[in-house]
């Protein structure tokens, strides 16, 4: 077994090439932690690692891997646990979209299920023995506001995020007497999303209400996790929204959402 003392410690982040995952990488690099970044091939992950190493003086390893591929995921974990000491896992990789369920192909649905549900579950399971070797370890799972209620035309996505929320909460309690803490983050809409950007541009200041940038979400998540929070809903508007979702009858909510998301189906191009 690898000696734990005096060995560089790493944070493993999935989906790290863009958006929230990239911002987590930058924030964690700023906190002087070494990184293992995972993303699909062809996303210039190597360049990102080079820049992070150059700017923050940390070690940053890039690993290209399709997490929806079972063998690739197994190989990734074997390589990581065999070569590095990891004390934080950020399960960020995830996909989703808006489309009629009858229009969605089985491959598309499979991809969401494999990435959002299976990859998060298996990575957590397979990395736990490694994480438990450390005095303090963290699993940070990225769920979504969508976890708090169903959304027509997104069907599988909110369901997968509800899975991550439920899974994280259960596991957190189960591991309460170990060194591993399990934290779940439920961000609302993020500014990096092109649809959201376009909306902001069209609506001006009004469109910005309740929106946070990916960087802000990453900072809030990490500092809240350090302060012992286990469920993180970044931003006041999102907290309010969660409260409303809880108390608004589901039938009313679904009717409102159905209308909004159907509109989203039609306005797709810039």
């Amino acid at each position: 077994m690898k000696p734990i003392e005096n060995q560089p410690v790493f944070t493993l982040i999935t989906g790290a090439s863009t958006g929230l995952g990239k911002e987590f990488a930058i924030e964690i690099a700023r906190r002087n932690q070494n990184l293992i970044l995972v993303a699909l091939p062809g996303r210039n992950l190597h360049q990102l690692c080079e820049e992070l190493t150059y700017l923050y003086g940390i070690r940053a390893i890039s690993l290209e891997c399709d997490l929806t591929n079972e063998t690739a995921l197994d190989d990734l974990v074997k390589y990581v646990t065999g070569n590095f000491s990891v004390n934080q896992l950020v399960n960020n990789a995830g996909i989703g979209g808006t489309s009629r369920f009858t229009d969605a192909t089985c491959e598309y649905l499979d991809k969401i299920i494999y990435l959002n549900i299976r990859a998060t579950t298996m990575l957590t399971r397979l990395m736990l023995p490694e994480l438990m070797l450390h005095k303090k370890a963290l699993v940070l799972n990225i769920s979504s506001m969508a976890a708090f209620g169903p959304i027509p035309y997104k069907t599988i996505y909110p369901a997968s995020k509800a899975f991550i929320y439920s899974f994280s909460r259960s596991l957190s309690k189960e591991l309460q007497n170990t060194s591993v803490r399990v934290v779940v983050v439920n961000p609302g809409q993020i500014v990096t999303n092109p649809d959201v950007t376009l909306r902001i541009m069209k609506q001006g200041v009004l469109g910005k209400i309740g929106l946070l940038t990916a960087g802000k979400i990453a900072r809030i998540s990490l500092s809240s996790a350090e302060n012992g929070k286990e469920v993180i809903v970044p931003g006041f508007i999102n907290k309010l929204n969660r409260f409303l979702i809880k108390w608004l009858p589901e039938s009313i909510r679904l009717t409102l959402l159905e209308r909004a998301c159907r509109k989203e189906l039609t306005i797709r191009n810039i």
Partner: peptide, 16 residues
């Protein structure tokens, strides 16, 4: 190149 876009606050058609 790693600094996140923060230009929406200017409400500028050019920047956006």
């Amino acid at each position: 190149e790693l600094s996140e876009f923060s230009g929406f606050r200017f409400n500028s058609g050019y920047i956006n």
